[in-house]
Design a binder for these strands. Structure first.
Length: 935
DNA sequence: CTGCTAGCATA
DNA sequence: GTATGCTAGCAGA
């Protein structure tokens, strides 16, 4: 008996957007942003090729790819707001639609795009026709709305996630069988398509009701018996007709008239899969710069062999880096993998030999905590070639009969290799694994690569988790941490995960890391500027690891004293506020505060928050404080409770009890300008401006016999502006060692340097900062408290005196528009996705970011270089001087008191010497018993 | 328990 | 006007 023929229906529209977003910014001419975008085209080709290699769909007799046509559909007639929340298609994608239709046809697929009928309805119609003729139907779509079509003959697969929705699959995923999916969707609604549904009814309630009443009609008949808010909303939705409308909107129309576009129907002959049109396909690939695909077309036999020589991938593939990648494009889930669980000495021996000989080994650790310094090691996974990995369970527990080698034995065997700088290693976010292994007394050496940093350097705006990297660059998806451990209060430790699952997950991580590296590393190598920045990031990672491990000593008693003082003052302010308000209220609640201020006391509304509420922020309170007593109390209360709640109450608790030191985590792949960020706790926003705030720095101390030193770059961003703009007046000011704000004031106000008043200097300082932030006259006016025309006059005057700066700003904005990114002095790329796309305000904001990014980013590069240089010098000659914090333009040290002179001598020179710009760099040092005194 | 807003600390 | 992270309150689970 032969299998019935198969019709393969591809929901082209659902893949368009995913291909567009998942693919990097590919161009017909690589690296030329003005040439046509090709990422979505490429993604689409990869996806169709993957389907040709998926057993279930490879042999399909009929194959159709369905797209939405432009323009309104019949649903818009029923409901004008349908899909009103959708943003318009990006131009970059729109321009790829026609080529996509063309290439799909050339690949032998029937293309259908029916005006007035959505792709979903076309698919529904074709699926029902085919199923009624005994044809097996496979729909390939990422859209779960199609689940209502599923029956014995119709299955949905999601090529990108590997999900498979058959009758049982739908029931498992949604909790209702396919036949009830329409009812389910009608109740739940759809925020994306703007289908209303029933207010406050989500998946849980919908499933409960459908189980109880059997169907939507059953539910409607019994609507009166439903209690609570949900019941009211249900009756309201029934009465208003909204529920009926929702049902109509979500129901796929399986009876569309397609004869104008598929005249052969109901006969399927027209839909037969054709041979691909090799000649024209070749032209097409050439035209769009798909060299690897063109080569594969010329030598198809290459596909048959060596399934293991590249990444198995859906959306990877750069022609330049990995000729094999697209040619072997197979759906991720079809990839052959060999994952091993190491549970015997013999297996461990075998892998020790492998990693010892490997060119590069991917390492990943599994732990029980996201906090690296407290994390316990649960297991280690290793991979030396794609598709093969091993997991060594070490800390699993609580499961009957867990067989694992003793932790101490395994680590003793691994340690020589881990600590050998000559054994090249790779990881994803290696700083974390370094901490975990350091917790076991192992100092890992020989890390050559970190895929997280590769991604950060290449595509700063995109997510850098391994999961997203694997999907984006290799098309692979896998087990998620949540799949294994759950979430919320029911989450279990990784140590409790059954070994087979833990092994699969851990091996996958190491395997995918190696895979992603093979895609990203060639891209970095191909661009000298990025290579330089990547090497800087790798060195910075090591310096950060050291700094995080050092931590900073905290004086818990001092903080407790301050908390006490603040607490007393806060209580007094509360009492005073209650008196003035005539009633008690929560001073921390902007909502209650608004009611007291504007409803009860009748204070004037100064401005609104973005969401329309009456603002009570600092600026508003300052203004109101001129005429009323209560706002001043609020201002003081706000600032004191901020200090108490955020700093004095919290910091001591974050110190490790054993050492009394806090160890922040520096995020190296978060800030889009290249800066670091600090969290748990954030040590980069410890107060300094107000006296009360600055006191908190007294609690950042050095142990007995030691002192704190702070070295900060002076005016670093303005110096970078002078370098980048080449403006002569500004360069001269720095070369002459002038106070730059004073010099600016002298120029702008037309007075001699020694005639500048402190008010004039203050204005000049604000202008200088404004320049770094890409200011407008509007913004300047607001911060200086002057009117718009006066601010514009200052800016004019400034640009007259510093024409080079003006030219630089204009050039930068123009360049940003042209290439959609700007660069730092050292070649870091700062992408500006909104610069051409967005509306007026968004575009203006992107232009300001374009002006700021090279300055902020170059400053970030410089201090990273300084950290690396300083740490290397310390290691070489002063190992008891510790680098303990970085605050954007400042490095903080803890050192023996008698090494202070050495530091004053050496560190500023190192910091100033990391680059030779057109202006000298200057770093200044302070030393004291605590961080406050070190300034 | 989770996600959002308002507000505010730093460079 | 640039770039971050953290807290409290609040609303919907």
């Amino acid at each position: 008996m032969t299998n019935p023929p198969t019709l393969l229906l591809v929901d082209g529209s659902s893949y368009l957007y995913r291909a567009y977003h998942a693919m990097p910014d590919l161009r017909a001419v690589p690296g030329d942003p003005s040439s046509p975008a090709t990422g979505a085209i490429r993604g689409m080709v990869n996806m169709l090729q993957a389907l040709d290699k998926t057993p279930e769909t490879a042999q399909a007799a009929y194959a159709v790819c369905v797209f939405d046509a432009s323009g309104p559909t019949f649903r818009d007639d029923w409901y004008p707001e349908y899909k009103a929340n959708r943003s318009p298609m990006p131009d970059d994608l729109r321009s790829q639609i026609d080529p996509i239709h063309e290439v799909v046809r050339l690949l032998g697929w029937k293309v259908l795009s029916v005006p007035g009928v959505e792709a979903d309805d076309v698919i529904a119609t074709l699926a029902r026709i085919a199923a009624s003729q005994g044809v097996q139907v496979v729909v390939s779509s990422g859209d779960k709305d199609l689940s209502q079509l599923v029956d014995e003959r119709i299955t949905i697969i999601d090529t990108m996630s590997g999900k498979r929705r058959d009758v049982a699959g739908v029931e498992q995923e949604f909790g209702v069988p396919p036949a009830l999916m329409v009812d389910y969707q009608a109740l739940v609604g759809d925020a994306v398509d703007n289908v209303p549904g029933v207010a406050k009814v989500g998946p849980k309630t919908a499933v409960k009701w459908l189980h109880e009443f059997g169907s939507l009609d059953g539910l409607i008949a019994q609507a009166d018996s439903i209690k609570g808010v949900a019941g009211n909303n249900l009756r309201e939705a029934i009465a208003s007709g909204q529920l009926a409308l929702s049902r109509k909107l979500v129901t796929m129309q399986a009876d569309c008239d397609l004869t104008a576009y598929a005249p052969g129907l109901p006969d399927l002959a027209d839909l037969q899969k054709q041979e691909l049109d090799a000649q024209n396909l070749r032209h097409f690939y050439d035209k769009y710069g798909f060299k690897g695909l063109a080569r594969a077309l010329a030598a198809p036999e290459k596909e048959a062999k060596a399934p293991d020589n590249g990444s198995g991938d859906l959306f990877s593939s750069f022609d330049s880096d990995d000729a094999a990648s697209t040619e072997v494009a197979v759906a991720a889930q079809q990839r052959e993998v060999a994952y091993h669980c190491i549970q015997t000495q013999a297996q461990l021996d075998e892998w020790l030999v492998k990693i010892d000989a490997a060119e590069l080994t991917a390492i990943d650790t599994e732990t029980d905590s996201l906090n690296a310094l407290q994390a316990q090691l649960i297991g280690i996974s290793l991979s030396v070639q794609p598709g093969e990995a091993a997991y060594i369970p070490l800390g699993h527990e609580g499961i009957e009969g867990v067989q694992q080698l003793p932790l101490a034995d395994v680590l003793a065997r691994l340690k020589p290799w881990l600590e050998d700088a000559g054994k090249p290693k790779l990881g994803q976010h290696i700083k974390y694994d370094q901490h975990v292994l350091a917790n076991q007394g192992i100092t890992v050496r020989g890390y050559r690569h970190d895929t997280m940093l590769q991604s950060y350097v290449l595509e700063v705006h995109r997510p850098h988790s391994l999961e997203s990297l694997a999907l984006r660059h290799t098309g692979r998806t896998g087990l998620s941490y949540e799949d294994l451990c759950g979430k919320g209060k029911n989450q279990i430790s990784f140590a409790q995960v059954p070994l087979d699952k833990a092994c699969a997950y851990a091996c996958e991580d190491a395997d995918q890391t190696l895979d992603v590296h093979r895609v990203l590393w060639p891209q970095i190598q191909a661009q000298a500027g990025l290579l330089h920045i990547y090497q800087l990031e790798m060195q910075t990672s090591e310096a950060l690891f050291r700094m995080e491990r050092n931590g900073v000593a905290i004086d818990a008693q001092e903080l407790a004293r301050q908390s006490n003082d603040l607490g007393t003052r806060i209580v007094a302010l509360e009492q005073a506020a209650y008196e003035l308000a005539g009633q008690p209220f929560n001073l921390s609640s902007p909502k209650q505060l608004g009611e007291i201020f504007f409803d009860k006391l009748g204070l004037p509304v100064v401005k609104k928050t973005p969401s329309g509420a009456r603002s009570t922020d600092e600026e508003v309170l300052e203004k109101l404080a001129q005429d009323y007593p209560l706002p001043a109390k609020l201002l003081e209360h706000r600032s004191l409770s901020k200090l108490k709640n955020t700093y004095t109450d919290k910091l001591a608790h974050m110190a490790l009890p054993r050492t009394g030191r806090v160890h922040t985590h520096y995020a190296q792949a978060v800030a889009v300008t290249g800066r670091l960020s600090s969290n748990e706790p954030n040590l980069q926003n410890i107060p300094v401006r107000t006296p009360e705030g600055r006191r908190i720095r007294q609690a950042f101390i050095a142990p007995p016999g030691r002192v704190i030193a702070s070295a900060d770059y002076s005016q670093i961003e303005l110096r970078i502006m002078a370098h980048l703009s080449g403006d002569e007046a500004l360069l001269r000011a720095f070369h002459d060692g002038l106070d730059v704000h004073r010099a600016t004031a002298a120029e702008v106000f037309g007075v001699a340097l020694d005639q500048v008043s402190s008010e004039q200097r203050r204005f000049a300082k604000v202008i200088n900062f404004g320049l770094i932030y890409g200011m407008s006259s509007y913004g300047l006016a607001k911060t200086l408290g002057i009117d718009n025309s006066a601010a514009a006059a200052y800016i004019d005057r400034y640009f007259q005196r510093y024409p080079g700066v003006k030219r630089y700003m204009d050039d930068t904005v123009a360049l940003a528009h042209k290439q959609k990114y700007v660069e730092t002095v050292f070649g870091r790329r700062l992408q500006l996705p909104d610069i051409n796309g967005g509306s007026g305000p968004r575009k203006k904001a992107a232009e300001r970011a374009a002006i700021n990014a090279p300055m902020q980013g170059t400053a970030a590069d410089l201090i990273k270089k300084a950290m690396v240089a300083v740490q290397q010098r310390l290691d070489a000659v002063q190992p008891d001087v510790l680098l303990i914090m970085q605050v954007h333009d400042e490095l903080v040290f803890e050192l023996p008191a008698d090494k202070a002179d050495w530091l004053r001598q050496e560190v500023p020179a190192l910091m100033a010497g990391v680059a030779a710009l057109k202006v000298p760099l200057l770093a200044e040092v302070g030393v004291g018993a605590n961080w406050e005194q070190a300034h």
